[in-house]
Design a binder for these strands. Structure first.
Lengths: 309, 309
DNA sequence: AAGCGGGCTTGCATGCCTGCAATGAATGCC
DNA sequence: GGCATTCATTGCAGGCATGCAAGCCCGCTT
């Protein structure tokens, strides 16, 4: 004579499962997103539908799982629950005072390539208990969804649930290999062939500038990766617009002209405000933040002799 | 280089676990409420706290688990999630068009004793695929929390998330054993000793009436169970106020006086509005509802010869 | 003070769930 | 038209969480 509710959904993980299938539209993709096997998804979904007595997805041949009204309803609820757990996850992590555990950092390619790795090495030496995971990704990973704990970004964060500090201004300049003799001092690119961004790249200040300043036929090599552009410059392929912290550190390169005053960006180190009290996040902010701050001159293009004139 | 969020709470059932422990305040009780073993709760909670890096409960000796701020936060979120799943559970059950599965019905003691069981037998015969579970409980089980699918209640439902139909008015009268000779025709209890409710019973119309109408010393036997009172009447212990559907069916009893016009109640069959489209709920409403409706005269006290005068 | 009882903690064997791998089916592409 | 790819489905073996049972600690009672 118990009064316990008769729950069909007594396993809350089933909701997660349904959500994943609804999002991905296929068992296999849902499985990879959940980091479990296809067959498990298949069997558990079957069990859930049987228990509920309702079909949650319409199976099209070719493996297309389209949610039924019931399935959509379940997925919607699961989505709300997911948001709840994400908030909770950050909140409880904010109480974590251990200097151990995982720490996921994301940054742009170039920053990782030139500036960040030595700082992380220092951090690791000081905090051997913390496993650092560096996600180099030119996409902006979501700190709210906890795709990373800390981001190093070339833009000032707008969302006010984020929290961070400015590292430095970022100066940009044109670079070419020293072995390449300038042919036209009046041209911003020194008369060299130009290395630029992919045609499809928009809304990035540097890419827009290059597209405006060099005619399409001058651009002999395009890459959406700044590191690739950098390598191309070093190989003497032409001139490219690079952040000074990337170009100045390379002895074989030289600047063509001064840093471009209208391209100054800002480098920020950012976390979610819920995580700023987490011990390992704070430690990273302190150590790496200070380390990068010490290299401020590098970011701002003040180390090169040209600017000293 | 995955961009998957780093979730500490990747197992949503952990939230359920924490909620249960927070609610019960002890591992053992939490375990029974979850219908799993103590040791499992112990180990899983330990694992969760370790993964989160935060203590969720303060252990007092003597086994008192008091939530820390973090634990309270988790429990609060879990509570919201629970509400979400309960809503969802009803919603998806509302789509269940099978005439199979479980069906939990709750009713008062007396109704089950006298009227309901034969109806359920009829229902079972008509729907052999449905397992009926009858929770006889004088507490009002929550249909919203899905402690039952269907309730038979002696009061008109107030909450507008509930849905139901009125079966009949319920008449009450004083009954005594036929073997007991009435001593005082002017007294509502015929001069007999009185059988009444426990002193602590309030807010039940019948109980209040008896307490008002009979002095405390006249009441020779008290029980919070109407069925017990009924048995006592049958044993010749005295007179009691009983619903007519309970008293009239018993050949050894006789009414003392007419049904009390100021105690007419209403018998309702009720479900959650989300469940009214569920096939097995609808079937129960149709079959049992009709069956009880056919016995309306019994509820309204119209079968006894006294009222025919 | 000693016995008792409730609740937490831990070792051990079982069983279920999971991952793996093979099979089958369907679509798109060359 | 055949091949390659993607996805669903099912048999099978291993591992991990679970339940069971015993041990332990603490507070309460007599």
């Amino acid at each position: 004579m118990n009064a316990y509710p008769l729950q069909m959904l007594d396993d809350w993980n089933d909701l997660k499962l349904v959500l994943a299938v609804a999002r991905e539209g296929a068992l296999t993709r849902a499985a990879t997103s959940l980091q479990i096997d296809h067959s498990t998804v298949y069997r558990r979904l079957k069990a859930v539908e049987q228990r509920l007595g309702t079909r949650l997805f319409e199976r099209s041949p070719g493996g297309d799982y389209c949610p039924t009204p019931a399935g959509a309803q379940v997925a919607a609820a699961a989505e709300r629950i997911e948001a709840e757990t994400q908030t909770l996850d950050r909140a409880v992590s904010g109480r974590d005072q251990r200097l151990s555990g995982r720490l996921k950092v994301t940054s742009s390619e170039t920053l990782a390539y030139r500036m960040l790795t030595p700082e992380i090495a220092r951090f690791r030496a000081a905090n051997p208990g913390i496993q650092v995971e560096l996600a180099v990704d030119n996409r902006v990973l979501s700190l709210s969804r906890r795709e990373a704990d800390i981001a190093l970004r070339p833009i000032r964060p707008r969302e006010n649930e984020l929290w961070g500090r400015k590292i430095a201004d970022v100066a940009w300049a044109i670079y070419a290999a020293k072995s390449l003799a300038p042919t036209d001092p009046a041209d911003p690119f020194g008369g060299h062939p130009v290395i630029g961004w992919g045609e499809e790249v928009n809304n990035i200040g540097a890419a827009d500038w290059v597209n405006r300043s060099a005619s399409s036929e001058r651009i002999v090599f395009r890459s959406s990766s700044l590191v690739n552009q950098f390598v191309a410059v070093r190989a003497g392929m032409g001139a490219a617009l690079l952040p000074c912290y990337l170009g100045d550190g390379e002895p074989d390169l030289q600047r063509i002209g001064y840093p471009l005053s209208d391209l100054r960006g800002e480098m920020w180190i950012v976390t979610h405000s819920d995580l700023r009290t987490t011990a390992r996040v704070r430690a990273f902010f302190d150590l790496v933040g200070e380390g990068l701050l010490a290299k401020r001159a590098m970011f701002e293009g003040l180390t090169d002799t040209i600017t000293d004139k």
